[in-house]
Each structure stands twice: as C-alpha cells, then as structure tokens.
Design a protein around this nucleic acid. Structure first.
Lengths: 189, 189
DNA sequence: CGCGCGATTGAGTAATTTCAAATCTAGTGG
DNA sequence: CCACTAGATTTGAAATTACTCAATCGCGCG
C-alpha cells in the first residue's frame, strides 16, 4: 500500500526514505464498498484521492437527472472535484465507487503544505496536472472529431480492461451516447 | 508589455522587482499578423506562449481535412500543444493567429529552469495547470450534457467578446457543430 | 458596379435519441 | 437441477437532431 504510492511518486520524482515518510504522513487511507459515495454533489469536497485499488466514477447529474460520467479512476489515478477542492466550494459532481475500493485521501490543507514544504511534491503535482490537462484536451478532441463508434474504439484501445469491469450502460454514459446506440454499434463491428 | 505579464503573474503569486526581472529574461516577444502559423502540425513545438494582445486558435485537422478548434486564446492566456511541448515531440495541432497578435514565448528549457530555480514560478504553473484542467473538464461536461444550442449559449455567457471577434464559422468549429446548424439556432432564439 | 466572403436557407440524408418490448444472464432459493 | 427474479443488454420503430450539398442572400471593398 505504502509502496504503491511510493512507486507511483517515483515514476516522476526521486525520494529518500525520510522524504517519502514525511509525504506519506499527509495521507489517510479510506475503504469503500461497491456503490458508495466518496462525496456527493452539493456537499463540500474535503479531499482529493489516490486510488490504490478498485474503480471510481466522477459523475454529473444534469437538470433532467441524467447521469454523465466525467471520468473513471482506476488504480494509480488521482481524482476529485478539483474545482470544489481547490476553491473549497460545494461539489457539482459526485464521486462513486464502482467496485470495492481503497484510496489514500489528501485534505486540501495537506496538499498545500506538501507543495509548500516539499518542492519535489509541488513538481510532482505540476507534472500530474499537466498530464491531466493534456488528457482532457484529447478527450475534448475525441468528442469533437469522432462519432460514437470511433469514440468507443478509442476508449477500447486506451483502457481495454475497463470494458471488463463496468457495465455498458456506464461506458455509454462516459462516451456521451445512449446505451441503445452503444449496443447497436456492435452490429457493424 | 512587461507590466502585463507581471500583473498576470501577480494575480497568483507575489514578486519582487528582482524576481520578476529574472523571470522576464526567460521570455522572448514575438509578433504575428492575422492568419499566421505560430506553429504547424507535424513540426516540433519549441515554445509555449503567453498572449499579450490579439487572438489565437489551436486547431486539429482530422483525416478528412476538417478543422476542429481545440481552444481560443485571448489576452492573458497561455497556449501551446502542451503534449508536444512537454514531450518534445511533433505537434498534432497547429496554432494560428485570428488577429494581429503579440505573445511572449517560453522555450521548454526556460520553462524547466524557471520551475527549477524559482519555486514561486513552479507554483504559478501548478495553479495555472490546475485551472486549465478544471476548464477542460467543464468543456467536456458541456459537450456531454448540452446540445448545440446550449453549448452556444454557454460560450456566449463565458466569452461574449469572442463573438464580436471571430466568424461564426470559427465558433461552430469550436462548438463541434456545422456552421449551418449554428446559423439555424438563431431561428429559435 | 461587380467580386468575394461569410452567413443563411432549403431539401434530402444520416446519425442518434426515445420509448417500448423482448432477450439474455447471473444469482437465489426450493 | 430447475424455476424465478432483477438487472443489463439488445432490438424495433418512430421522432428528433444534426449533417451535407447546393443555392441564395448581404455586405464591404476595390
């Protein structure tokens, strides 16, 4: 567990034992069953989360109550409603477990003190944020340039394991198509 | 000009004169006419850019040659093909001026040395990157939850000045609808 | 005046949605 | 081992939305 986080950090920065232990003390472990709310929309967002094991979805409910999946978070991913987290406002989204899931949680004060006291961690978060931004931009591009079938195959290529782990309804909700349309794609290939 | 950048940085971090001058020396000014390429797809991306005045579009050309606008960059915005910039690979997108435009350019080596030598700047870029990520996620959400008309009104609300500055064809390309569809939206409101 | 470009309009087509019904699947208890 | 149920998936058919291609309009500028 501890080693999982350490390995994850050391993909981008190098750490001594002391440094890692100092960092590690900022996190707390949390466990969730399947279909638990990690946080709900309308509520403050105290933490961001590093997923140790399991699977989460970050969802937005529109005016009609329809659910839209902003992102899936698998092992080794960071997740939160980052707007609400950084601005300490109430969430517009909910974070929900799709499997039994373990996370390390990082309260915003700890995030700030990590950045302020351990320059390497600030650099780590900067790199992660840049990667997150790039990833989002590519998702925007896939929504702009591709139809349902193409988007499905892009997802299939990027995260083949996801299709084994979540229902097709969830996949459709992520791709931005109805589950019926997603189902019909298979008729063609 | 120099003051524009300084004011921009000081929205998020505070700087002494000396600090700012050290930072400023990492940038170079560049001027472009309307419809110039700042960089082209297929070419390396040497810089990221801070827009002093004018307007840019970051575009992707799909297999059919159709253009998709990933983002507009107005005054006070940072822009690049960040994937190509950070990984020093060739761009998949092009950055093009829509007006006469002045930018400060920041080569990747200078970005890295800024981060490494001036912790405040690393913090600045972290905050900017977080904001950029949040903004992208909201655009994803608008693409998932809203139809053409709603997306148009969201853009109208967020950047009313944009509609005065660019053609409706460009707006349509950003929204992910055909210009004819955008045109027909007005019939309803 | 006439050219050129962007915006609009029209008509037919393609993609996707919606609502409803049917089918499949995995787990449960008899 | 089988029947039953709940949930997920697929299929059908009609309606909606957006796209394409073509033609027209409107306007600024040489």
């Amino acid at each position: 567990m501890k080693e999982t986080l350490r390995k994850h950090l050391e993909k981008l920065i190098s750490l001594t034992d002391d440094e890692f232990n100092a960092i590690f003390s900022h996190f707390a472990i949390e466990h969730y069953k399947k279909n638990d709310f990690i946080f709900q929309n309308g509520k403050p967002v105290k933490n961001c989360y590093f997923v140790l094991s399991g699977l989460l979805k970050l969802v937005y409910h529109d005016d009609l109550g329809k659910e839209h999946i902003v992102s899936f978070s698998m092992e080794d991913w960071w997740e939160s409603d980052f707007y609400a987290y950084f601005t300490q406002t109430k969430s517009t989204m909910a974070l929900i477990s799709l499997e039994e899931t373990s996370v390390y949680s990082l309260p915003i004060e700890n995030y700030k003190s990590l950045c302020a006291t351990i320059p390497k961690m600030e650099n780590f978060f900067l790199q992660k944020s840049n990667l997150g931004f790039i990833g989002s931009q590519q998702r925007i591009l896939s929504l702009l340039t591709s139809n349902a079938k193409e988007r499905y195959h892009i997802l299939l290529k990027q995260h083949p394991s996801l299709l084994q782990r979540v229902s097709k309804t969830q996949i459709a909700t992520y791709l931005g198509v109805s589950r019926e349309t997603l189902s019909r794609l298979h008729s063609y290939k």
